[in-house]
Computed example of a mutant assay.
Amino acid sequence: MATLAEVARHAGVSASTVSYVLSGKRSISEGTRDRVERSIQELGYHPNAGARALASSRSHIVALMVPLRTDMYVPVMMEIAIAVATTARQYGHDVLLLTGEEGPAAVRRVVGSGLADAMIVMDVELEDERVPLLRDSVHPSVLIGLPSDPSGLTCVDLDFTATGELCGDHLADLGHRDIAVIGEAPAVYQRHTGFAERTMEGLRRRARERDLRLIHRPCDGSYESTAGVLSRIFEERPRTSALVVQNESSVGPLLSLLQQQGRAVPEDVSVIAICPDQVAEQASVRLTSVAIPAQDMGRRAVELVIGKLEGRDPHPLTLLPPQLTVRGSTGPAPTV
């Protein structure tokens, strides 16, 4: 492995100049900086993390808080985490993954230990207990999610309120009036998790505006739970002609149950899902869906937090507009 001294000889500069290029502590001419950076790349030099931290007063580590709860769809969470890690490496940063459900304690631990220069926080609740600490911290932070009061914070998320509205509009335009939502696990709503609450806010708004009859039933995603929820929906609202699914684990069981009951999709029941494209495309019926832009959210979160570390003041709120892809699972409401 190349040493700093070897990089200096290769670039024709002093070792201190290489250190200044790495730390950014002094202004270095563009030509010299380019020469040093080319040498670093050609020799495959990787500065010692401890020495680099001492030299720059930074760890070049970003902490990613991603509680891995059993009631969440882990593949999406990990897709975001991978996007964060790969993007951070492009900026010369590593990622410290915090997967426990520690809440404010984890924020205090990161801030108090100096383990990381910045934090990216996921699984954001409307009244998230971590938010006051993040507002007061000297460490930059970005939330992937949106609390009820985002003032003083930098947040990036899919616009889930607009997502709910888009689903409602699509089904209303097709003539559906009785719509049921198969939602996330009950604990997700008990925590008032932002994405789930905001989706329902958008759907309820469209229900009021377009005279839709809407019911919402949480579901833990298992076959048994999905069967129970579906049975309850049709018992309470026999004329239900469309289902909005915001629970990736329920997609497979739901389509199987509808087939067993002799309900054709979309002739008898339309189904629209809020899920990754892969889930929608690989279902037994290709689902009309609003995609979860996991990679985009992870990438943008890193870009925002790096901007804050470099002294830039990014836009506090980045809401990604939802994109609806119409496939084979939605059609006109059946005639009575």
Rank of each mutant, 00 (worst) to 15 (best):
P293I: 04
G307P: 09
G311T: 07
V290C: 10
L304T: 13
G298S: 09
T318L: 08
A301W: 14
E303P: 08
H315W: 05
G298R: 07
S289Q: 03
V305T: 13
G311A: 06
Q295P: 01
P321E: 07
D313W: 00
L317H: 03
P293F: 00
M297H: 06
S289D: 02
A301L: 14
L317D: 00
V302E: 13
A301F: 13
A291P: 00
L317A: 00
M297Y: 05
A291F: 00
R299V: 14
V285N: 12
H315D: 14
K308T: 04
T288F: 03
L287I: 04
H315N: 07
T318R: 09
G298D: 06
E310C: 08
T288C: 10
L304I: 14
R300H: 11
P316F: 09
R299Q: 15
R300Y: 01
I306D: 11
P314F: 02
L287T: 05
V302P: 07
V302M: 10
I292M: 12
D313F: 00
D296G: 08
S289C: 13
M297Q: 15
M297A: 08
R300F: 03
V305L: 11
R312L: 05
D296S: 13
T318V: 14
L304P: 13
I306H: 10
L319F: 03
A301P: 08
I306N: 11
L319K: 11
L309I: 15
D296Y: 03
A291M: 02
R299N: 11
R299P: 14
I292D: 02
Q295C: 00
R286D: 08
I306M: 10
T288A: 08
L319Q: 07
L320S: 04
I306R: 09
S289N: 14
G307I: 11
L304F: 07
L309H: 14
E303T: 12
P321I: 02
S289V: 05
I292K: 01
P293L: 01
A291H: 01
R286P: 07
P316V: 07
V290Q: 01
P322D: 03
V285H: 11
V285I: 15
L287R: 01
D313S: 08
R286T: 15
P316I: 02
K308D: 01
T318A: 06
G307W: 11
R312N: 04
L304V: 12
M297K: 14
D313N: 04
L304Q: 14
V290K: 02
P321K: 02
A294C: 10
L319M: 05
V285L: 11
P322E: 08
A301I: 13
S289F: 01
A294Y: 04
L319P: 09
P322W: 00
